[in-house]
Each structure stands twice: as C-alpha cells, then as structure tokens.
C-alpha cells in the first residue's frame, strides 16, 4: 500500500552494504548500495531518495561533501552519517549543517533502523518497526 522508503547507502567498505541491505529490506526499504562515492553522487543526481546514509570518511570524497550535494539537489532528503570513530569536531560541524543524525561504527543494524524510522517519521511516511519480518 504505502510506497517503500527509498534509501541510498554509501560506504567504501563492503561489509556495510552486505550486512545492512538485508536488515533494511526487512523494514520495507528499497536500498541501493554504493561503494564508490562518485557513482553514488551521479545516482543522486538522477533520483530523489528519501534517505541517504553515507560514511563520512571515504577516499575519493567525504560524507560531508555528499551531504552538501544532496542538500542542494533534494532538500527534503534526510541524510544520516556513519562515522568510523566518534570525532567531535566532525559531529559538531555536521550537526550545525543540518544532517539528520549520525551513527558510529561499530553498530548493530537495528540501531540504524531506529534512526531510519525516525527519519521516515520526520518525512511524514512513518514505518512500523514492529512489522519486521525476520
């Protein structure tokens, strides 16, 4: 009935996509996974995602640049940042600039799902986490 949540997931470490995709599928997200930020940004230019989850430190481009790009193109999209280590300056900078939230590795898929649920609610298209078909 309700449209599934369009999520773009960007992290240059394969483990992230590999473990998150099934977890997010289960809550009714349609996930596109990218390991290359250039490709991800190109895709963002083509399509409006509801939620973009991106790592903050990647070799070719950092997460904040991705965020700026998303913000300009699709202001409605909620962006969530994955950090590899809690860096206070980055957290501060990111929060001021308007990212929705951030999560630090290592984390459990469910932790991210909670944040995505909040983002979905903020978008006006809430998802029901109790309906997880495990």
């Amino acid at each position: 009935m309700s449209k599934s949540l369009e999520v773009l997931l960007l992290d240059d470490e394969p483990i992230v996509g590999r473990r998150l995709k099934p977890a997010l599928d289960k809550i009714g997200c349609h996930v596109e996974i990218f390991e290359n930020p250039i490709e991800a940004v190109a895709r963002i230019d083509e399509k409006e995602f509801d939620i973009v989850v991106t790592d903050i430190r990647m070799e070719k481009m950092n997460g904040m640049q991705v965020f700026e790009h998303v913000k300009k193109k699709w202001p409605r999209t909620k962006v969530i940042i994955i950090t590899g280590y809690a860096k206070m300056e980055l957290a501060r900078e990111a929060m001021e600039k308007g990212i929705f939230d951030f999560i630090a590795k290592p984390f459990r898929p469910d932790d991210l799902r909670q944040i995505i649920a909040r983002a979905a609610q903020a978008l006006g298209t809430p998802i029901d986490l109790t309906l997880i078909k495990d």
């Binding site: 483990i15 473990r19 590899g84 280590y85 590795k105 290592p106 984390f107 459990r108 898929p109 991210l112």
Partner: peptide, 16 residues
Amino acid sequence: EKVLGEYILDRHYVTS
C-alpha cells in the same frame, strides 16, 4: 561482544 557477529564494524575498529 562484537565478534558474535551482529555488528557492522570496520577494519579501523579492529586495528584500534
């Protein structure tokens, strides 16, 4: 705790 398998972690976690 992390090795039990549920976590998404990166190499950085292990090296640190």
